[in-house]
Computed example of a mutant assay.
Amino acid sequence: MSAGDHLAAKRTFLAWVRTSIALMGFGFVIAKFQIFLHVLAHEPLTSSSLLGGVIMIIMGIATLLYGFYEYLQDEKQIKENKFEVELTPMWIYTGLLTLLAVALVVSLYISAYP
């Protein structure tokens, strides 16, 4: 157990944080762009118009929470000097993000072809 191990775990967590910020920022841009398009077209804004942006923000939040969970698990394993791979949380995270991504695609399809 060295300082390098802890620093590597922290760098990995920061990569999760950067990814989550990018997803949330992109979701915000999608939502703002939808508002802009509705204002230009003089159409009322509906909640389904913002769904794509909201889904991306939720994906960002899920990524941040999962990254923090992984960081805590890594730190625990470093302290115990025991390294085991747990695939169940990764499967759950992957499934959750896949469902959110499919919902985003469906939302974009429905908004493009009403």
Rank of each mutant, 00 (worst) to 15 (best):
L37H: 09
L45T: 04
V39K: 07
I61A: 14
Y66T: 02
Y71M: 01
R11I: 15
F83E: 00
Y109H: 01
K79F: 00
A8V: 13
A9E: 12
W91V: 14
K82S: 08
N81A: 07
M24R: 06
F36P: 00
I55E: 04
V29H: 03
Y66D: 00
I61S: 11
L7M: 15
M24H: 02
K79N: 01
S48R: 14
P44I: 10
A31E: 06
G52Y: 10
K82A: 07
V105T: 01
Y66M: 00
M90C: 03
V54I: 13
E86W: 01
M90Y: 04
S20D: 12
Q77C: 00
E80H: 01
Q73Y: 06
G27V: 08
K79L: 00
M1P: 11
G4F: 11
L104T: 09
A62D: 09
A8C: 14
L7I: 15
E84Y: 12
K79V: 00
M1Y: 04
P89I: 12
G53L: 10
L14E: 11
F28T: 09
L100S: 12
L37W: 03
L51M: 01
G53S: 09
G27T: 05
K76M: 00
V17N: 06
G60E: 07
A101D: 05
L99S: 12
M90K: 03
G67E: 05
E80C: 00
F13I: 06
F26R: 10
W16Y: 15
F83H: 04
S47C: 09
Y69R: 07
L65H: 07
F68S: 04
I57P: 05
S107I: 08
G67N: 07
L14H: 09
Q73F: 08
S111F: 06
V54Y: 13
Y113A: 15
L100Y: 14
F36Y: 11
A103N: 06
V29G: 02
M56G: 06
I58K: 05
R11A: 15
L99Y: 07
V17L: 14
L65T: 10
